[in-house]
Amino acid sequence: MTTVKALRAPYTTVLKPYGSALVALARQKPNVVCLGADLTRQTETDLFRDQLGERFFNGAMSEQNLMGVAAGLARAGHQVFVNTFGVFATRRPYEQIAMQIAYPALDVKIVGLMPGLSTPGGPSHQATDDIALMRALPNMTVVDVADAREIPQAVTAISEIPGPVYLRLKRGEIPVLFDEDHRLDLDNVVVVDGETAPDEPVDLTIFATGMMVATALAAADALRGIGISVDVVNVACLKPLDTAGVLREVRRSKAVVTAENHSVIGGLGSAVAEVIAEAGLAVPFRRVGIQDTFARAASARYLFEHYGLGSQHLVDTAAALCGRSAPFPKVAEVRHEVGAYSPV
């Protein structure tokens, strides 16, 4: 296992890394077909439409039909990427995904953008249970990536997986957390930020996924400021989960926190808790995420703070779990331009 050193905010950002990567993949693989549901620009697939239009089909606002069409196309030998917002990709066509895509384990990649509380769209637009829904389906691989370096690699990697995949993607400006040498690892959970050797004990391990990796990095710095040693572990593949890797990190940790931009029910927190419990381990444990509630329509920054996804909340939770008393250390403010990406 390698430890990657992650970068610190403020992060540079990249536009449309997914859309570009999908076009590049399709140029290599003639059987790649791109489906949309009236969110072409929003899912970055306008690039595909404009460059490979003969393989792009807008299925209109009919996600149930679209999943069936994807299944038919896959049965005809195509690799199908279905693109829409995560909430529409999972809740409305759940049964269609289960019966037509997951049950026969077809080569369909469902790409759900705008995860969790990253949108001001309120409960209709916030995919807060998509990981839980997709994890529950047999044969389904579930991936949530942390930054713009990982996105193109994720497109290539999931294309190599023969069965169905749910890929969860942030929309809009995508931060660059890792350096150019970073390699996405879907097979292993990876310590992306830590100062301890792989076999040494550590005070706290934060398992983070997707947008919460950046949040965890900011929180880790604040916690280290009061003498808590911290490893941040990037969990890019939530299913199948690298159980052995999770146990390896848990066994050397005095406390464990999970961090996800998703309900704490059924997502990363649940998955890690299942591994810990079934291994018979007892370790102080907390799940940071959306605490079994729907969220309001507001800015992402407001929502992350209000619903306990911010790095300060992560610091407070982790410090208390490690036996520290308030006042807890403050997370450093990061200067950022209005509209630009910054961890909350």
């Binding site: 149930q64 069936g68 069409v69 038919g72 196309l73 896959a74 049965r75 030998g77 049964e95 037509q100």
Partner: peptide, 27 residues
């Protein structure tokens, strides 16, 4: 039989995908 049906209303979508796929394949 080509698809798993029985939950009603799903088969026609799969058939449409198969038909589109056949056209893309020049079949």
């Amino acid at each position: 039989l080509t698809a798993t049906c029985g939950s009603l209303g799903q088969g026609l979508s799969v058939a449409a995908g198969l038909a589109l796929g056949a056209r893309l394949n020049g079949s």
